[in-house]
Amino acid sequence: MDELIQTDRAVAPPPSTAGEWGAFERLYRESRDDVYAYLAYLLGDRTLAEDVLAQTFERAYRKRAGFDSRRGELRGWIFGIARNMALDELRRGKRELALDGAVLDAPVPAPGDHVIDRVVVADALLTLDPRDRELVALKFFAGLGNRDIARVLGRSETNVGSQLHRAIQKLREVLDA
C-alpha cells in the first residue's frame, strides 16, 4: 500500500509489476474488514455488504488512475467508492432494510452482560439521525479520520468534526440516561 500512497504524482501507478499488484492486494487486506463493517452497517445486510465490497475493490482497481493523493488518503478514496456503490444499491431498492438492521443481523453471542450492553448501544444508535449514524459508522466502525470522512461525505473537515461531536454528545446522553 505504501507504494501506492507515497507516489509523488497524484495518480496511483498502474500495477503492471508484481510489486504493485502486491501493493493493491495489501490495500485490500488492510481495508477489507473496515469497509465491510461500514457497508454492513449502512446496508443492514451482510450478504449484500460482501457483494458491494467485492465490487468496490473491483471498481477501485479499474479507476485507480483517478485517485488523487492531494485530496486524501487511499483508504478514504476506497470508502468513497464503497459509499457510492452502497447508496446506488439502496437507491435501486434492492434492500429496504438499512442502517438499523445491521446489528440485528449480527451473529448472536452467548447471553450475558455484554449482550445486554450491545443491545443498549444499538438502541442508542437508532435514536440518531441516519446521517449522524453514518458519521458514527465511518468513525467508530471504519476507523476513518475526520479528513477522510469529510472527503467521503463531501463536507468540510470542520463540519464533520462538529457534527460528529454533537452525535457523540447525544449518544452519551442516551447511554447515561
Binding site: R32, D33, Y36, A37, A40, Y41, R46, A49, E50, A102, V103, D105, A106, P107, D117, R118, V121, A122, L125, V136, F140, F141, I168, L171, R172, L175
Partner: peptide, 13 residues
C-alpha cells in the same frame, strides 16, 4: 464510550 461503540462494529467471520 468509544470502545463500547466500537464493539458494535459489524465483523466478518
Amino acid at each position: 464510550f468509544a470502545l463500547r461503540l466500537r464493539a458494535e462494529r459489524p465483523t466478518i467471520g
